Computed example of a mutant assay.
Amino acid sequence: MIYGIGTDICDIRRITATLERQGERFATKVLGDAELAVWRARSARWPKRGVRYLATRFSAKEAFSKAIGKGMRMPMSWRLCEITNLPSGQPQIVLHGALKDWFEAQGLTAHVTVTDESDYAASFVVVERGLPPPANP
Rank of each mutant, 00 (worst) to 15 (best):
N136T: 15
Q106G: 15
G89H: 03
C10I: 09
R57C: 13
T113V: 04
R14I: 14
I93W: 00
V127T: 09
A44K: 02
Q106N: 14
Q106C: 15
V126P: 01
A37L: 05
R14M: 14
S77I: 08
T84Q: 09
I12Y: 01
V112I: 02
S123G: 05
I5P: 03
F103G: 02
G89A: 06
T56R: 05
W102K: 09
Y3R: 13
Q106R: 15
T16G: 13
Y120E: 13
G50M: 01
G6Q: 01
D11F: 11
K66C: 00
L108V: 06
W102Q: 10
E117Y: 12
P132S: 06
L80P: 11
W46M: 12
G107A: 10
I68W: 04
D119R: 14
K29Y: 07
E62A: 03
G71Q: 14
K61E: 02
S65L: 08
C81H: 03
Q106Y: 13
A135E: 05
G97D: 08
F124Y: 07
K61F: 00
A60S: 04
R49H: 11
A37E: 04
V51I: 04
Y120F: 13
L36C: 05
Q92A: 15
D11K: 10
V125L: 02
G4S: 11
T28P: 06
D101R: 13
L36W: 03
W39C: 01
A105Q: 12
W78D: 09
W46E: 07
P132R: 10
K66R: 08
T113H: 00
H96Y: 10
V114N: 05
P137C: 00
I68A: 09
V30D: 01
Y53I: 08
F64I: 02
R42L: 08
E24S: 10
Q92S: 09
R21N: 07
Y53F: 11
E82V: 06
W46G: 11
V30L: 06
E35R: 05
K70S: 14
I12H: 00
W78A: 08
L19E: 10
N85Q: 07
Q106T: 12
E62F: 01
A105W: 04
K100G: 12
R52A: 14
Y120I: 13
E128D: 13
R45N: 04
T84N: 07
R14G: 14
Q106M: 14
G23P: 00
P75G: 15
A41W: 03
Q106P: 12
P75E: 15
T16V: 13
K70W: 13
R73M: 13
Q106F: 15
E104H: 10
L19W: 05
P75A: 15
F26C: 06
L95Y: 01
K66I: 01
R40S: 03
